Simulated scan of single mutants.
Amino acid sequence: MPSPLDERLRARYAELSPQERRVADFILDHYDDLISYNSAELARLSGASKPTVSRLFKRLGYSGYKALRDELRALRQSGVPLVDARTLADGDTLPARHYQQELANLNRCLAGLDAARLGEAAAALATAGQVLIVGQRNAYPVALHLRQQLIQARGRVRLAPQPGQTLAEELVDLTPDDVVVVVAFRRRPRLIAPLLKSLKQRQVPVLLLCEPEARALTSLARWPFPVPLDSLSAFDSYAAAMSLASLLANAVLHQSLAAGRRRIHDITGLYDDLDELEKPSP
């Protein structure tokens, strides 16, 4: 794999002309912002000419500045946090832009949702012998939230792996009558693909939540649900993923509404018996 731009610059810095060093210094000081600049802006901001910028990137092994931006976009799509430093337009605000991006993610997620697939997945989750939810790294909060919602609608819902533990012990007893929910977003652990392949080979049905670009994984799941993670800047957004988790849990509850209501009633009674939750103000 080629060295990242900053490593290439440092390795060849002594060979650069004074004008190229000016561009290099600007890049090293604003590395996370490069994805938001074009070559003309980079030349203007660094105080160099466009030919100088072009020569520098060719010297570093790029066909041009566009090739570098493509490389940075690929890194961003893989989950590497890269800052988008574009300034706000007149009258725009950061919260307003954030709202628009979140709304776009939610619209894209729900507009592309197959209602029949959702219903089939919800029915399977409601009737499975057990439900195992797997989520690690940035997928863990979504997996934990989904488990907390599902456990109120039905029993035998587990989260794996437990802290400091491995997965094999959690998987060994699974059968085709169970369902595994795999929440796996970009920069996921290496074990996700082998896990999905193993479950498919053992005919254990899988519901998968992942980003839309993870096409290599979706074919390994019975019910894949792509979730957009786009954000304004460096860090992915999981608002649409949380919304989808809520939708799934509610759909499961409505599959067995009478039994689910009894379970929720019993859980509420235990809250009171154990005095676990703060009482609402009168």
Rank of each mutant, 00 (worst) to 15 (best):
A24M: 04
D25H: 13
F26G: 03
I27H: 05
I27G: 02
L28R: 15
H30F: 02
H30I: 00
Y31E: 14
L34S: 02
L34K: 02
S36V: 05
S36C: 10
Y37C: 03
S39T: 14
E41M: 11
A43Q: 02
A43R: 03
A43Y: 01
R44D: 10
S46V: 04
G47S: 11
S49Q: 12
S49A: 15
K50A: 14
K50Y: 14
K50H: 13
K50R: 15
P51L: 09
P51Q: 04
P51W: 05
T52D: 08
V53I: 15
R55D: 07
R55E: 06
L56T: 05
F57H: 01
F57P: 01
K58Q: 12
L60D: 03
L60V: 12
L60Q: 03
G61K: 12
G61I: 06
G61P: 06
Y62K: 09
G64P: 12
G64C: 09
G64F: 07
A67T: 06
L68V: 05
R69F: 00
E71F: 05
E71T: 02
E71R: 11
L72G: 03
L72S: 04
R73T: 11
A74D: 10
R76W: 08
Q77S: 15
S78P: 07
S78N: 09
S78C: 13
V80R: 10
P81T: 05
L82P: 03
V83S: 01
V83R: 05
A85F: 04
A85K: 12
R86N: 07
T87N: 09
T87D: 08
L88H: 06
L88W: 06
D90G: 10
G91H: 08
G91Q: 08
G91M: 05
D92G: 04
D92Q: 14
L94Y: 06
L94G: 02
P95A: 06
P95Q: 00
A96P: 04
A96K: 11
R97D: 02
R97T: 10
H98S: 11
H98P: 01
Q100W: 10
Q100A: 15
Q100N: 11
Q101I: 15
Q101N: 09
Q101G: 06
N105P: 04
N105T: 04
L106H: 08
N107C: 13
N107S: 13
N107F: 10
R108P: 01
C109D: 00
L110Y: 04
L113M: 07
D114P: 03
